[in-house]
């Protein structure tokens, strides 16, 4: 999110189905939604908003692959170049014995990498205080927000009537 102050007009809905209808209507009316906030993930909201599929899992795959290569490569280097040890009459480069650790590190790299990426791209870290519009959004309200910076009164009125038509239970403004 950019740091400049924004004037936000937002409506709160009581039910996710009403919200979904409202989002679809907004798209149909070519209103530019700044954001939608919900207390839980609403099924069908992403396509309604036109959000692209998250590419987080691709990042996860890449981190995992790095883990695989690192673990396997490192053990190979240790046991064939750096300090070969004979154990149990097995060859130095004993692939089956490398698999458990390779697997664990694949998972570890992928999980840590993905979680860190997730929090970073969402701008979330311990102690971060992102501005919220309404405390009840994490409870039972479903919110559509519009950025009204520099918008004329007629435009704002149009948004207000949109909220009224689509069944929002409350309409408020806030500067964040």
């Amino acid at each position: 999110m950019d740091t400049a102050q924004k004037e936000v007009l937002f409506g709160l809905y009581d039910d996710e189905e009403v919200l979904l209808d409202a989002v679809r209507k907004a798209k149909g009316d070519h209103l530019e939604i700044m954001d939608v906030f919900t207390p839980f993930p609403v099924h069908g909201l992403d396509p309604a908003l036109g959000l692209e599929e998250s590419r987080l899992h691709i990042a996860g795959f890449i981190y995992g692959a790095i883990g695989t290569l690192f673990a396997f490569g490192f053990m190979t280097w240790v046991f064939t170049r750096d300090w070969p040890i004979i154990f149990g009459g097995k060859p130095y480069w004993s692939v089956p014995a490398f698999i458990p650790i390779t697997f664990e590190l694949t998972v570890l790299f992928s999980a840590i990498g993905m979680t860190v990426t997730f929090f970073t791209i969402c701008g979330m870290w311990p102690g971060v205080n992102n501005p919220t519009l309404d405390d009840r959004i994490t409870d039972d309200k479903f919110c559509i927000a519009f950025n009204t910076n520099g918008q004329s009164k007629t435009e704002v009125d149009r948004l207000k009537s949109f909220f009224k038509e689509t069944g929002a239970s409350e309409v408020n403004t806030k500067v964040i």
Partner: peptide, 12 residues
């Protein structure tokens, strides 16, 4: 497959 193979390979 791996469990069976690896255990037999390891114990030898």
């Amino acid at each position: 497959w791996f469990s069976q193979y690896m255990l037999i390979w390891y114990a030898n």
